[in-house]
Simulated assay, not measured.
Amino acid sequence: MTSSPPPKIPESVLVVIHTPDLQVLLIERADKPGFWQSVTGSKDTLEESLHETARREVAEETGILVGTPQVPDEALRDWALRNVYEIYPVWRHRYAEGVTHNTEHVFGLTVPAGTPVVLAPREHLQQVWLPWREAADRCFSPSNAEAILHLPQQLRQPARTDR
């Protein structure tokens, strides 16, 4: 008898990975071909900080390791943007019964141009680097597109030091 995984926590991160010249990484979902997005993922535990969730999801989905000389910790920034949205019905079975909404916390991650990306094949089919406006247009999720459109403004903001 196999046990089902525990329900997902309805609190997640969206990480806009970009280069200094505003090329944005998008990845295509394996479970929904044609759906392009930034890195997303839910907290694994209630105790996991949002910063830890963002670091973990970036590593799992792209192979990019935050906290290395190439991508230092300060390259991952909490943009202090929150989105509360209705979970698509196709994915609601992953959550506890009655959970219909998720709170998404937006982060940005600046990486050097040419940073290698290794996709998790069970999660994503392919990747593309696009200019920020073009990347926003390709996203299936309105909140993801909106976050990417905030990119130039976020780069002008001083870094937040709280985690």
Rank of each mutant, 00 (worst) to 15 (best):
S4C: 02
P5M: 04
P5N: 04
V24N: 04
E28S: 05
F35A: 15
W36P: 06
Q37L: 13
S38T: 15
G41R: 07
S42K: 01
T45Q: 11
L50S: 07
E52A: 15
A54C: 02
R56N: 05
V58S: 08
V58G: 08
A59N: 04
G63D: 04
G67M: 10
P69Q: 10
P72N: 10
P72S: 10
D73W: 01
D73I: 00
A80T: 04
R82L: 11
N83P: 01
E86A: 14
Y88M: 03
P89M: 03
P89K: 11
R92T: 14
R92M: 14
H93D: 14
Y95H: 03
H101V: 11
N102D: 15
T103A: 14
H105L: 01
F107V: 09
G108C: 01
G108P: 00
G108I: 02
T110L: 08
V111P: 09
P116E: 07
P116A: 06
L119F: 10
A120C: 11
R122Y: 05
H124Q: 09
H124G: 03
H124I: 01
L125Y: 02
L130G: 01
L130S: 01
W132I: 01
W132H: 15
A135W: 02
C139D: 08
C139E: 14
N144V: 13
A145K: 10
E146P: 00
A147Q: 08
I148G: 03
L149G: 02
L151H: 12
Q153L: 08
L155P: 04
P158D: 06
P158A: 14
R160A: 14
